[in-house]
């Protein structure tokens, strides 16, 4: 089975966001594999172990993303590909990202492509379905269970808390939801092995992509932090009085009940 996983390097969830000069301050921040992509990597490894084949992790970004690819290799992926757009593109939106990834994938004869259902930084959740559409293959988003039997794939997907049980055929792209599995930590031997696994770096030229073909359709004009929430009132007194006061405040002051 030829398996590909689309991964993204993102800010650690522990990080506070600082905006300087209209941009997110990245200096000194910790970066991780997007948590939803970790589920995708784990699932890919499990499918390969059960069915045979190869797992290739692919990311789009700059040199720095090599670290996250090595982590994925240490978890057990076989190969990694970094499509480095740093020198070619100033601006990249979901249209551009999906185009580039699809150009890379189009002649790879992937049986299964996995990704996270959303990245915790940009939060658009678009790239997976866009890539599937560009490749002309079917996709299923926010999956919590995957079973492959020959060409048939049985899937459970999360739909706003409900579960949809469905069937589709390979080739297929799926995006992972929390609950799909428990991603493993890289083992020490895994980390050692990862250093020797192939990590290929490509640029747009290598994929015969013209910069004009991937010009972003949307543009961010401003980034800002939400207004700091002022700490509210901690009520005092007898507990039953506090409860009465709270209900009355919610009713007459905040007017939400």
């Amino acid at each position: 089975m030829n398996i590909f996983v689309l991964v993204k390097r993102t800010f650690d969830t522990e990080e506070k966001i600082v905006v300087t000069g209209g941009a997110i301050q990245e200096d000194g921040a910790e970066f991780i594999i997007n948590p939803y992509d970790e589920y995708a990597i784990e699932e890919a490894i499990q499918v390969r172990d059960a069915q045979g084949g190869e797992v290739t992790v692919v990311t789009l970004g700059g040199e720095d993303a090599e670290k996250q690819l090595r982590t994925a290799l240490a978890m057990g992926a076989d190969k990694a590909v970094l499509i480095n757009t740093e020198d070619d593109l100033d601006e990249l939106d979901q249209f551009s990202a999906a185009y580039i990834l699809a150009e890379y994938l189009k002649d790879k004869e992937a049986d299964l492509i996995l990704g996270g259902n959303v990245a915790i930084d940009g939060g658009s959740g678009q790239v997976g379905p866009r890539v599937a559409e560009l490749l002309g293959i079917n996709y299923v988003t926010t999956i919590t269970k995957l079973e492959i039997d020959g060409k048939t794939v049985k899937i459970v997907r999360d739909v706003e808390g409900d579960s949809e049980v469905l069937e589709a055929e390979l080739p297929l792209l799926v995006t992972a939801q929390q609950g799909l599995n428990e991603p493993r930590y890289p083992s020490l031997p895994g980390i050692m092995k990862a250093k020797k696994k192939p990590l290929e770096e490509l640029e747009l030229d290598d994929l015969d992509i013209d910069e004009d073909d991937v010009k972003a359709k949307t543009t961010t004009v401003e980034i800002y932090l939400p207004a700091q929430k002022v700490a509210g009132r901690v009520l005092e007194g007898d507990l039953s009085d506090q409860v009465k006061e709270l209900v009355s405040l919610l009713h007459s002051e905040a007017k939400v009940v």
Binding site: I120, G122, G123, K217, T218, T219, V221, E222, I223, Y224
Partner: peptide, 17 residues
């Protein structure tokens, strides 16, 4: 729209199409 799950916000415009 919120980014970083609401830790920050961005203003976005459509350039084309």
């Amino acid at each position: 729209r919120p980014i970083y799950s609401g830790k920050a916000f961005e203003k976005v415009q459509v350039k084309e199409g």
